[in-house]
Every structure is written in C-alpha cells, then in structure tokens.
C-alpha cells in the first residue's frame, strides 16, 4: 500500500512539472498539508475538470438507479457533508445497504476501507452497490450504461472526459470517483487553527485536550480515523449486524465497525452505523455511561473493571465545543459539489 502511495505521489508531482501551463484550475486534486498521503490510484484515474463535472452530474442524476427514482444525492446531501440527515436507515435500497446509516462522503482519496464493515476496498467500486441494490448484481450496471448511451447529453460529456467514443461502466465509475476525490474537507476552524490562521477558544482548546487524551487513539490523525475496525461498545449482541465479521467471516471481528472520521460531525447526525443517536450529547453519554461489554469490546474502553471513558458533564460540554470546530462551511457550500441541474 505504501508503495502505491509513493507511486501516486511521484505521478502527481511529475504530473505537475510536466504540464506546460502552471496548474491553476480548481479541479486539481489538492493535498492538505495536515493530512496523511492519499491512497487512491490517481495513476489510473487522475482528476480532470471534465471528468469531475461528469461525476457531479451522475451523482445528482436519478438515471443511475434501477427505476430512475433515486440519485446518490438523495442519501448523500451536501449541506450535511454528504450524509443522510433524514433516514436512520437509508431508504429505497434493499438488502446489504438498507440496514445501515449513510455516512458522510469526504476525503475519500485518503481512505482504504469503505462501508461500515470495509466490504469495499476501492472507491471506484462503491457506487456499484448503490446502483444495483442487490447483494449480487445482475446485468443492471449494464442497463445503466445503456441508459447513458441513449441519453441526449451524456455521450458528449463522456467523450470530453475520456476521449473515447464508447461509454463503459469503467468510465462511469471513474467519473464518480473523480468527483468524490475532489471532495476534500480541510478548511474547518480546526484546520485553520492547525495552519495557525486562527485561534480556538479556551473551551475548544480544553475540548481538544480531552479529545487527545481519550479519543485520539481511534479517531486518529487529522482525518480523525485510524481506518481500523473496532467495537466501541454499542451492543452486547450482534444478531442485527455482525459488522466486520460479515466480510472476514471471523468471530473475532463480530460487532466491529469502521472507525468513522469525525470531520463535520456536528452536521452528520444521526450517529453510528445504525444511526441510533441523534445528538453528540447522546454519543458522549454512550462513551461515559452506556458502553456494553462483549468479547470483542475494544480494550481501550475496558480499563480494569470499569467500562467506557470517564467524562464529567463539564468535559462533555468542552468536547462538544471542540467537535463543532470540525465543521467545514467551505466544503458544504462549495459550488463544485452542488446540484448541477439547479442553476
């Protein structure tokens, strides 16, 4: 994995120096200084303006769903960092997808594992699930490609994005990935603080300190996730959703879920894989009072006899103040990510 990263970086760097004109378009993938290196295979699918704009259209177009009724944007809304504010369980898609809460889409280029159980290992493959909504797909992806071919304007858009005369599923997935890779959220108050452009209030600073002490091991780096799978004590039994075990088929992974990024967390309610909590207060009350023991409970949440994290009411207030500094208005208002069909 590290090798690919280095490669990607080399490609990115050489890409820049090779260009005759200096890159000054806002559709170039930008790497925030406080982030770890991206892992997406940019060598195969670099971001271009035409590609990302095509991806943006596809993202907002219900043509991708089986019955042309639902777009990606139904469940992933920009105002809330592309999470789903309405449905605890996503609506309209059955089986595998239907029993989980739609997470935010942000900083995807830096992520190795997708979905709450990490069932998908590459961003390109994520949309296939949504498009087909069956555990195993039939020829429906093919049908979407046929629909795009018959459309009045898509063939031209695909041609300008990929310089080829045919539309393939690969191009469709590439365009969506280009769009999602562009979705970098790195201009929250916290980022500005890290870049020394602004100060945090006393309360926020103390919240950050509490966060560093109790939460940072799992919600690590400035992506606020260590990209691992852990059980944070939501349940004692996992009949409803075995989490990571669905993928690894290993009982030691039962009840483990991907540690989610906490960027824009004030906006992405409801929380957890099943959207069981509506407020950050409830989340913190969970960590302090409601952590349940089970064989796979993370050791960090089981110190000696006591379960969970000791947090006073005052500490919770500070923590929440800090978590709110992770909201990124630039991101939720960025025109490049808005609905292109509403002008």
């Amino acid at each position: 994995m590290r090798f690919t990263t280095v490669l990607t970086l080399i490609l990115l760097v050489s890409g820049c120096t090779d260009d005759v004109e200096p890159v000054k378009n806002s559709y170039a993938f930008e790497m925030p200084a406080n982030f770890p290196a991206p892992v997406y295979t940019f060598g195969n699918n670099p971001v271009s303006r035409a590609g990302a704009e095509l991806g943006q259209m596809l993202f907002y177009d219900p043509v991708l769903s089986l019955d042309s009724s639902i777009a990606c944007a139904n469940c992933h809304q920009q105002a809330v960092a592309f999470s789903d504010p309405v449905h605890r369980f996503s609506r309209g898609v059955d089986d595998a997808v239907g029993f989980r809460n739609a997470p935010a889409i942000q900083n995807m280029a830096f992520q190795n594992n997708f979905f709450w159980d990490g069932g998908v290992k590459h961003l390109d493959f994520v949309p296939i699930n949504a498009v087909t909504s069956k555990i195993e797909m039939a020829e429906t992806l093919d049908q979407v490609v046929q629909k795009l071919k018959r459309s009045k304007f898509y063939p031209e858009k695909f041609r300008s994005a990929f310089q080829e005369d045919q539309i393939t599923s690969q191009q469709m997935l590439y365009a969506l990935s280009q769009f999602m890779n562009l979705m970098v959220s790195a201009n929250s108050k916290y980022d500005q603080y890290v870049r020394k452009e602004t100060d945090l209030t006393k309360e926020e600073t103390e919240g950050l300190e509490i966060f560093e002490a109790h939460c940072r091991t799992c919600h690590a780096t400035d992506l606020f996730t260590d990209d691992s799978f852990r059980n944070n004590g939501l349940d004692a039994g996992f009949e409803k959703d075995a989490g990571r075990e669905r993928i690894t088929e290993f009982s030691g992974d039962r009840g483990k879920f991907k540690v989610p990024s906490l960027r824009n967390v004030d906006l992405t309610s409801p929380y957890m894989h099943d959207g069981r909590f509506n407020t950050l207060q409830q989340v913190l009350d969970h960590y302090s009072n409601m952590v349940k023991d089970s064989e796979t409970l993370d050791p960090l949440l089981k110190q000696g006899e006591s379960l969970g994290i000791v947090l006073s009411a005052e500490e919770k207030v500070k923590l929440i103040a800090f978590l709110k500094t992770l909201s990124d208005e630039t991101f939720t208002h960025d025109k490049r990510f808005a609905n292109p069909f509403i002008k």
Binding site: A96, T132, E136, M137, D142, T168
Partner: peptide
C-alpha cells in the same frame, strides 16, 4: 473484468 458482466460481488467487493 467489466463489473457489468455480473461476476462482481458488490457488498464484499471483488
């Protein structure tokens, strides 16, 4: 390897 050929597992990709 076009996933449209129907031999792609979507929930556990591969």
């Amino acid at each position: 390897l076009d996933p449209a050929k129907g031999l792609f597992w979507t929930w556990n990709s591969g």
